[in-house]
Design a protein around this nucleic acid. Sequence first.
DNA 1: GTGTATTTGTTCGTATGTATC
DNA 2: CGATACATACGAACAAATACA
Lengths: 81, 81
Amino acid sequence: MITPDERVDPTGPEPPYQQIAEVIRRRIASREFPPNTRIPTESDLVETFEVARTTVRRAVKLLREEGLVRTVPQRGTYVAG
Amino acid sequence: MITPDERVDPTGPEPPYQQIAEVIRRRIASREFPPNTRIPTESDLVETFEVARTTVRRAVKLLREEGLVRTVPQRGTYVAG
DNA sequence: GTGTATTTGTTCGTATGTATC
DNA sequence: CGATACATACGAACAAATACA
């Protein structure tokens, strides 16, 4: 569940896509998103954070570049094992 | 039949998916698509309006949210009774 | 009963145009 | 101007269930 303090603040110091990446990072660190499981779809994240899909994709791209997740086309994005 | 004035105008003020929803809405209102009958398949609508399936689905989703139609997986989309 | 076609569901990839800061 | 964000659209691939020959 996304708690209030994890919602995106468009007026905050960090851009939304970084805030979203940070939320997902914590989910992974806390094992709420365990290794090798799929994280929510882009559509889900769009609804959860109420942002555009491009913003969600940017956040996920960040995590991918950090090696925290891997994305499989037409399948989803998975937490690194 | 889709008359010329009901074709989608990509340059119009309203996006294609809204225009398509409006066309179907009129078909329902005029009883050309009577209650409890199936509306054309997504593939049919794709050919008729010459748009992508995602666009058709978006239009139908709108109608579904309005309660005008209900979609049955693997069956089709039906006009609300 | 079997295999194929149909039809909607899901999900990511990509591109374009507009707006805002 | 560049980075960010939003809305829209097209495409592709595959899943799953139903319909049909």
